[in-house]
Each structure stands twice: as C-alpha cells, then as structure tokens.
C-alpha cells in the first residue's frame, strides 16, 4: 500500500533553503524552464517536489534526481509561487549527504575544501606558467581558519559520515 504523508515536507521546510516547499501548486513552470528536463526525463523538478510533498523520503534521497539539477536557477526565477527550487534541491542534497548518500564527486569537493581551503589545486606547472605570463604569485588561503569554520557547521557531521564510509 502506498502511504502518503506530509512529514517529509515538514522536515524539509525546517531546513535552510527548504522553507518554500509548501508554496508549490504543481504548475510545472519549473520543469519546462529546466534545461536538463528538456533533454532527459530522468530529471523533473516538479516531480521531485511532488514526491517530497507526498512523503516519498527514500525515493527522493536515494534516487539520482536530486543530483541532476544543474543549479541554473531558471526555475527559481520563473516560479509563480516563489518556491526557491534550486535552494530546495540543495536542502535535499544536504539531507541525503548527511545520511551517507554521497556521490563521489561530492566527496572530492569535501576533501579538497577541508584539506586545501580551495576546490582546485594549482599544479606546479601552472605556477611556473603564471610567472611566465607576469601574473602575481598566488596568495594562500588560511586553511586553519576554514577548518575552524567548517567544524562549527553541519559540514563537520558530513566529514564524520565520510570517515565512517572509508
């Protein structure tokens, strides 16, 4: 039997970025705005929202749909009910990741930010090239400060989840 419940919507609504989920009246403006949905039916923001509103927590959090948003914000811009759809999808990703559902590329982002304070490492070759083109030497981020900040946020929890996975 299929169970329908508003519990998951309530959970999402409490999260940063998820506040506007119940504004949705399923008009589908988001889906027709979406460049990804236009090329594949693997992603459909309207359906993602209705699944969340119906309480299909597992489907939403373990499925691939939440990862296929390209963060272009076109849906958010045009939504007549001011549902902050892109932000809502971040909120859903946050929940999925905190529960251990972490796509590989995101584990890489997490470790890069934590270890380097930046997402991309500058290769030695590039540093030389920079010099050749007369670019100033790169200033370094304060990794310690970044780590101290991250420890105060839910990022800290994510680190633990990832450690547990390894």
């Amino acid at each position: 039997m299929i169970r329908v419940s508003a519990d998951f919507a309530k959970e999402v609504k409490k999260r940063l970025g998820g506040e506007t989920i119940t504004n949705c009246y399923q008009c589908g403006t988001c889906t027709s705005s979406c460049p990804v949905a236009r090329v594949t039916n693997r992603f459909n923001p309207r359906k993602l929202i209705v699944q969340s509103l119906r309480g299909k927590r597992d489907d939403v959090l373990t499925g691939e749909m939440i990862w296929l948003c390209c963060s272009c914000f076109n849906c958010q811009e045009r939504c007549p009910q001011r549902v902050e759809i892109a932000d809502l999808i971040y909120a859903l990703r946050n929940i999925a990741i905190s529960e251990g559902n972490v796509p590989n590329i995101y584990s890489e982002f997490v470790s890069a930010l934590y270890s380097e304070g930046k997402l991309v490492k500058v290769a030695g070759f590039t540093e030389k090239q920079r010099e050749n083109f007369g670019l100033p030497p790169l200033k370094k981020p304060d990794v310690e400060a970044i780590r101290a900040i991250l420890a105060e946020t839910s990022f800290g929890e994510v680190l633990k989840v990832l450690e547990g996975k390894e």
Binding site: C27, G28, T29, T31, S32, S33, A37, R46, R78
Partner: peptide
C-alpha cells in the same frame, strides 16, 4: 503553466513551452 514563449526563427510563429 508555460515557462516561456519563444519565436520559431524558421516559421516566425510563437512557440509555447510547457510541461
């Protein structure tokens, strides 16, 4: 609810894009 109306450059007619 359609997201936009574009002009088909070939026919010159409006195209309504809607899910």
């Amino acid at each position: 609810r359609p997201t936009e109306i574009v002009l088909n450059p070939d026919s010159g007619k409006p195209v309504v894009i809607v899910e």
